[in-house]
Amino acid sequence: MNRLNKLFATKNKNLLSIYFTAGYPALNTTVDIAEALEKSGADFLEIGFPYSDPVADGPTIQHSSEVALENGMSLKVLFKELAELRKRVSIPVLLMGYFNPIAQYGIGRFCKSAAEAGVDGIIVPDLPLFEYENMYSPYFIDSGLSNIFLVTPQTSEERIRKIDELSNSFIYLLSSSTITGYNLQLSDSIEEYYKRITAMQLKNPTIIGFGITDSSSFAKACNYANGAIIGSRFVKLLGEDGYMDKIEGFVKGIRP
């Protein structure tokens, strides 16, 4: 049972996760930011590693990725920074990024390095179900890492069942078919989609992401899932002067 499973076993409502891009705005800030987020009350974290061609991301996370790459961030550098992680951070941590950097690092080596750093799960948006199940799942399982799948309003029930079967921590529900960084408009069709998911009584908890920006959209999302993830809005904050001192206020502003 990894930290994620323990978290979901003890708390299943209003969970707050925060995403940020490693290497943005500067190198050697990853563990500092993670620690500040834990102290401010975040329940778990997603640390992004940058890629030159992030097709699922909007302008904010694209920009953070470009800056991080210019700063010299890579998986090698990230794992060096994460050597400090478990000395200072106890909440669950996921890594999120695209498949090609992982493939070049070596997928087996990547899973091993992540597990050694105390990472609990991985989100790879462009690693599809078929390829995961048939080629790569043993690496994740052997390292004790959860692989997190995304579900959108267009995902079929049959496919959601399959995802539920292959998941062992939580399922990442996208608020709509969108790239990151757009505001959530809670329309009737989105409500219907969340209700459809709830009615499926999945074995895994669900967390809503993409389009959550403030306390109100966070609270709405939590009506339909076990929690929600904030990404672009937090990455924007990291672009401001004196961002370290603003983290606590940001997190408490989302979930008073």
């Binding site: 097709v55 462009d126 599809p128 078929f130 799948f149 995304l150 959108t152 267009q154 079929s156 996208l174």
Partner: peptide, 20 residues
């Protein structure tokens, strides 16, 4: 049938593009 030519091909796409 899975979209591969030997070692190459497939559909490495985010779930958002899967239905399309």
């Amino acid at each position: 049938e899975h979209g591969y030519y030997g070692d190459f091909g497939g559909a490495y796409i985010p779930e958002m593009l899967y239905p399309n």
